[in-house]
Design a protein around this nucleic acid. Structure first.
Length: 420
RNA sequence: GUGGGUGUAGCUCAGCUGGUCAGAGUGCCGGGUUGUGGCCCCGGAGGUCGAGGGUUCGAACCCCUUCACUCACCCCA
């Protein structure tokens, strides 16, 4: 029979890893709420048209990476490849703009893209996603970037490099784009086939081509920073001033172009050397026209996404097991098994973690099990003890052992554990 | 979609130029202590050597096909 395995590029998060995930998520919630962000949970599926419109019809994501299928009533649905579109949809649908001038949201969950998996890239991956609506001030950019780096440091990330750029806006980007195309057309013979294709499809992407000859061509290309309109120019320099004021180190990367069509003005990215080729662990930017473009009010927006798999891959490894058991009930014989079972569940109901082996094995074997489960105490229950209405309590660290009456034992154990 | 690498026990891997090559460590189960864990000692279970075909007297090893995983490109978190 054919082995049933997980879908390609989709990973189980095993018990050994789950605690780290939980901590990262908890830490995100705690920190983001300090900055005034509220959690929103949105469906992982949306109507396909939402993503087509927001991400851009000609992007790789929409063209070939989406999990799209036809619902039973012939409606096209898509597993979300990113979170921003869904959050904006919810923002519009629930008329947040009518209720408050500025809305700050975050959401955590899985995203889906049908790419070829490799290190740091999966078909189902998880993002922590943050969005601010209704604030076009540079302070908003700086706040969001500061929060991102603060969170990453707090999560335990040692070295991170922050890069920022401005991508201009509706008025200045087209000029820049045209200048780049003109420039590239002058050196077509030096470009790789991919880049030649890009001139027609998405000229700005030539900027992050890794082929050496292309890179040297790009070194001489026009810079977006020379083409920014006064408004974008002003905004960008304010953002930089604010970041410096916050003691945040960053590097200007005029070659950074982000993949999604909707970005405007500030774009930023956090990279790590520990990740292999997919070295970007968080990225985001401003998207001032997007909410309106999706049928909402004309409010500005800015946000970022953090790749959880990539973040966790950068974290220093955890050695110790998180798993602990307060009491292991070791029962010997049928009668003890029966009493022990009741006792173990009483302890659980009383708020202690309790474990037991139901296979009626030797005491030695049960002690081994207790040890494996990292038990603080083992409660030994055999015929002798039952006869006398008591149990032997063994401290697994000190090996000290004492007899406890079964009467009121849950409370007694709670007290003992509290003292530790 | 394109290229490279790797598939041997639950896990990590060894296995030379085809001829005791089906192994080690770890984990699991049991015993040494007939009711006491971690260390130590002993024993046991567990593998159609990814799958299919071919060459050969003989294939984990060579050839072909295929699948999976992995890394890289494309692109992105």
């Amino acid at each position: 029979m054919e082995k049933i395995t997980a879908v390609k590029g989709m990973k189980d998060i095993l018990p050994a890893d789950a605690p780290v995930w939980r901590e990262v998520e908890l830490s995100a919630r705690r920190i983001f709420e300090r900055f005034g962000f509220c959690e929103i949970r949105v469906p992982i599926m949306e109507k396909t048209s939402l993503f087509q419109r927001s991400i851009g019809e000609t992007t790789d994501i929409v063209e070939k990476e989406m999990y799209t299928f036809c619902d039973r009533d012939d409606e096209l649905l898509t597993l979300r490849p990113e979170a921003t579109a869904s959050v904006i949809r919810a923002y519009i649908e629930h008329n947040f703009a009518g209720v408050e001038p500025v809305t700050k949201l975050f959401t955590i969950g899985p995203m889906f893209r049908r790419e070829r998996p490799q290190k740091g890239r999966f078909r189902q991956f998880h993002q922590i996603d943050v969005e601010v609506f209704g604030d076009d001030s540079p302070a908003s950019d700086a706040e969001v970037i500061f929060m991102l780096t603060h969170f990453l440091k707090e999560a335990g990330l040692a070295e991170l490099s922050l890069e920022i750029n401005s991508l201009g806006c509706r008025t200045c980007r087209p000029d820049f784009s045209r200048a780049v195309v003109d420039y590239l057309k002058g050196s077509e013979q030096a470009l790789c086939p991919d880049c030649l294709r890009r001139i027609g499809t998405n000229p700005l992407r030539v900027f992050d081509c890794k082929v050496e000859t292309c890179a040297s061509v790009i070194d001489g290309a026009p810079r977006i920073t020379d083409y920014l309109c006064p408004d974008c120019e002003q905004h960008f320099s304010s953002v930089q001033a604010l970041l410096s004021d916050l003691q945040l180190e960053f590097t200007l990367n005029p070659k950074m172009v982000r993949g999604l069509d909707y970005y405007t003005k500030t774009a930023f990215e956090v990279k790590s050397g520990a990740l292999g080729a997919q070295n970007s662990l968080a990225g985001g930017g401003r998207y001032d026209g997007l909410v309106r473009f999706l049928g909402g009010p004309d409010v500005p927006g800015i946000g970022f996404g953090i790749g959880m798999e990539r973040l966790i891959a950068c974290l220093p490894p955890r050695a110790d097991s998180f798993f602990r058991t307060d009491i292991f009930v070791a029962a010997l014989g049928a009668r003890a098994q029966q009493q022990g079972f009741r006792l173990a569940n009483e302890l659980r109901a009383a708020g202690l973690s309790a474990a037991m082996d139901y296979a009626d094995k030797s005491l030695k074997s049960q002690m081994k099990r207790a040890d494996k489960l990292n038990s603080a105490y083992t409660l030994i229950l055999g015929d002798k003890e039952i006869e006398e209405n008591r149990a032997e309590l063994r401290n697994m660290n000190t090996k000290e052992q004492k007899s406890l009456p079964l009467e009121g034992i849950a409370q007694a154990l709670k007290n003992i554990l509290k003292e530790r």
